[in-house]
Write a protein that binds this DNA or RNA. Structure first.
Lengths: 224, 224
DNA sequence: ATTAATCGGTATCATATGCTACAGAAATCA
DNA sequence: TGATTTCTGTAGCATATGATACCGATTAAT
């Protein structure tokens, strides 16, 4: 089980966890509905085998696939814990697949023996959700800058704050970066070039170097 | 203690929780630094009295206030639990104030007696963070639509999915709505008018009515 | 080594959106 | 009631960004 919920758990501990939490394993045929957006979410799922689609569906009957999940991935952990415990998306089996369903209640209430394994899983759950929150917050900070230059800058300063290095190795290609920022690739290129012309940064391939930190910071949106 | 972490706890339970978790109460004078962005976050804080500023600070020494917190508000819960346990923002005392610091470790490890109160706090913590994740995810969904019409639509459909009503009562004024969507207010007004002209919606004050759901759904970005 | 595919920078043009200003409507307050 | 303030729609103009196309550079595949 390579799901983050089982981080730091030995093979036999995972077994013991399964004893303690007794997930129900369910089988789905290709195309079968696993959970519908709006359904009450009283637990979460971990994919054991096969591939699962996460999608948004519409009143009209159309739907759009947002992402795929496969072995070891989980869904609805956040939803299961939140106040309005409903699925925010629809989950459909893309291929035949097996899914373990864990009810959230036993996890939250701790078993009578307050076993160590149980404790660790709860910590892992907390960390999993917090990490997702962190990533989302970062993305939102970047994307909510109004100008393209602001988005680029916000992203770069964030990298700098983490790494403390002015030479940054980006984790993506330009088109991926553009997509992360929510802009078009040519626009990103153009703006980067302008910023280079102005002596703010230099770049080549996946490397970006911050040349003038003080000036760069002035490129951020003033917040109203 | 009106912090969400203490939801569902009676007065005396909160006392018992404080016994169990033994937060350290600290006093700060107006202007004093409480935590610096990048500092290790091994716990979180709850404001007991006074006002606290959350801000982003820059290399240049400048800083921007992002929000204020006051009695009952908490900060850094998410950061304390996440993998990279550092403060994502800087916290400064705006007025003289008192803050209770809770170390995260004792909360995660459960007290020897696995007391009920402790359990409930952990659940509340989980819910608090999940709710924040949920809100952020919604906002990101909306704001990452590329066109203004897409943003409006995404937001309206979200409201509809939750309420199942086509007559929607918005939680904000137009200028607040514009800010939530990350656009300018006149642009929002213009787009809304156009959408009314096309028979998609009708609106007045804080009320928006969805007239043509099927057509409206077509206003969403196709995702690449 | 040749070919094919991907990646990245640039130019042109169209347009969606921001900005500013103004005025009527609605709400708040004295 | 009248006086202020806030909220909202509209208009004109400026401009940042998107879309498309093209080409060279790099990388991967044969």
């Amino acid at each position: 089980m390579k799901n983050p919920l089982f981080t730091d758990l030995a093979e036999e501990e995972i077994e013991s966890a399964r004893q303690c939490l007794s997930p129900s394993r369910r089988h789905y045929s290709s195309g079968e509905l696993i959970a519908l957006r709006g359904d009450p979410a009283d637990g979460f799922g971990i994919i054991i085998s096969g591939v699962v689609e996460i999608c948004k569906d519409f009143y009209s009957g159309n739907h759009v696939v947002v992402m795929f999940l496969s072995e070891g991935d989980s869904f609805a952990e956040g939803a299961a814990v939140s106040s309005n415990a409903v699925y925010p998306v629809t989950v459909v089996a893309k291929t035949d697949c097996e899914v373990d369903f864990y009810y959230i209640q036993p996890i939250l209430s701790m078993c009578s023996s307050a076993c160590n394994v149980h404790k660790k899983i709860m910590t892992n759950l907390l960390r999993l959700i917090s990490d997702r929150l962190w990533a989302l917050q970062r993305r939102l900070d970047v994307i909510s800058q109004k100008t393209l230059r602001g988005k680029i800058t916000s992203f770069l300063l964030d990298m700098f704050a983490i790494s403390h290095r002015k030479k940054l190795k980006l984790p993506f290609f330009k088109h991926e970066w553009a997509s992360y920022l929510g802009v078009s690739r040519p626009s990103l290129s153009r703006e980067l070039s302008w910023m280079r012309d102005e002596g703010l940064i230099d770049f080549s391939g996946r490397e970006v170097e911050i040349l003038d930190l003080t000036q760069l910071e002035k490129c951020l949106d003033p917040l109203e």
